[in-house]
Each structure stands twice: as C-alpha cells, then as structure tokens.
Lab assay of single mutants.
Amino acid sequence: GSPGIQSFLPPGWEMRIAPNGRPFFIDHNTKTTTWEDPRLK
C-alpha cells in the first residue's frame, strides 16, 4: 500500500476531514487548526 498523506505532514500535525468534505489541518504543537496545508508554506 502507499503511505498515507499523514506521513508527509510536519511533526505534531494531523489532517482531518471536515463535515463538508474539506480537509483541514490540526497543529497539536500550538493547539490550532487551519485550512492551509502546512507543507505549502
């Protein structure tokens, strides 16, 4: 199987799917959430 997208996120980050189907990202380091992919910064 191919590695999940989770493995490509920075340490402490998690990806979830919102009720509307959009992915969002949780930064457990700062306890914040964002719509922006942290890998694109």
Rank of each mutant, 00 (worst) to 15 (best):
G1A: 14
S2G: 11
S2E: 12
S2M: 13
S2Y: 11
P3V: 10
P3T: 14
G4N: 13
G4L: 12
I5T: 14
I5H: 14
Q6D: 15
Q6G: 13
S7M: 10
S7H: 14
S7D: 15
F8G: 15
F8W: 11
L9R: 00
P10E: 04
P11N: 09
P11F: 09
P11G: 07
G12S: 03
G12K: 04
W13A: 00
W13P: 00
M15E: 15
M15K: 05
M15L: 10
R16G: 10
I17W: 14
A18Y: 06
A18G: 10
P19M: 09
P19E: 10
P19R: 13
P19A: 11
P19S: 13
P19G: 09
N20M: 03
N20F: 03
G21S: 03
R22A: 10
R22D: 07
R22F: 09
R22I: 11
R22K: 13
P23S: 06
P23M: 07
P23A: 08
P23L: 08
F25L: 01
I26F: 09
D27L: 02
D27M: 02
D27E: 04
D27Q: 03
H28P: 05
H28W: 12
N29D: 06
N29P: 02
N29I: 08
T30R: 06
T30C: 05
T30G: 08
T30Y: 05
K31I: 06
K31T: 08
T32H: 08
T32S: 08
T32E: 07
T33I: 13
T34S: 07
W35S: 05
W35A: 03
W35Q: 04
E36R: 08
E36M: 06
E36T: 07
D37M: 07
D37P: 15
D37H: 05
P38S: 01
P38D: 01
P38T: 01
R39I: 06
R39V: 06
R39G: 11
L40Q: 14
L40H: 14
L40T: 10
K41T: 15
K41D: 15
K41W: 15
